[in-house]
């Protein structure tokens, strides 16, 4: 599915997609955090017929209902906003000292400054894992921090 992305100077961003059944949907992202969910006219692809304004919290709820893909967008946004911040996906290898241990045990945030913001297991995304989240070999964690910090996370998860 192609996402069409247009800048709206002074307002924010306009994303739109066309579904396989030919309906066009869009999201207007305001700088203020407001999101407008829009549905385009069947006969006139330039015009919206439905327009729902969402607060940031409401938008998050809708996004969670629709799936977890929003976390990825949020990370990309973080990356754009803060120069020098990187996201890294790190697999927990078999034989890792943390296979079977919890996120809290790793103390990665204290030791590296980087944060583990999500864990992908069997194509399922666990957003914002809590300290008692238990890792299993094969999990892929998503770490956010400086390049040095996320590299340090990788070496901790591999070698302890």
């Amino acid at each position: 599915m192609d996402i069409e992305r247009v800048n709206l100077p002074g307002i924010g961003m306009q994303h739109s997609v066309t579904t396989s059944r030919g309906r066009r949907l869009g999201v207007v992202s305001h700088h203020t955090g407001r999101r407008d969910l829009v549905v385009y006219d069947k006969d006139d692809p330039d015009s919206t017929v439905v327009n729902v304004a969402l607060t940031p919290d409401e938008a998050n709820v809708v996004a969670e209902l629709l799936g977890t893909a929003r976390i990825v967008e949020r990370l990309a946004e973080l990356n754009r906003q803060v120069e020098g911040l990187v996201t890294q996906q790190i697999a927990i290898p078999a034989g890792s000292p943390y296979d079977g241990r919890t996120l809290g045990d790793t103390q990665t945030r204290t030791r590296t400054g980087a944060s583990i913001v999500a864990v992908v297991r069997d194509r399922e995304v666990f957003a914002s894992p809590r300290p008692d989240f238990r890792f299993v070999a094969g999990d892929v964690i998503v770490a956010v921090g400086t390049a040095d910090g996320t590299n340090a996370v990788a070496s901790i998860l591999t070698d302890g």
Binding site: Q14, V28, D46
Partner: peptide, 10 residues
């Protein structure tokens, strides 16, 4: 008027 999603807005 709810025109922000329209394609003429950009």
């Amino acid at each position: 008027l709810g025109w922000l999603g329209n394609r003429e807005t950009p």
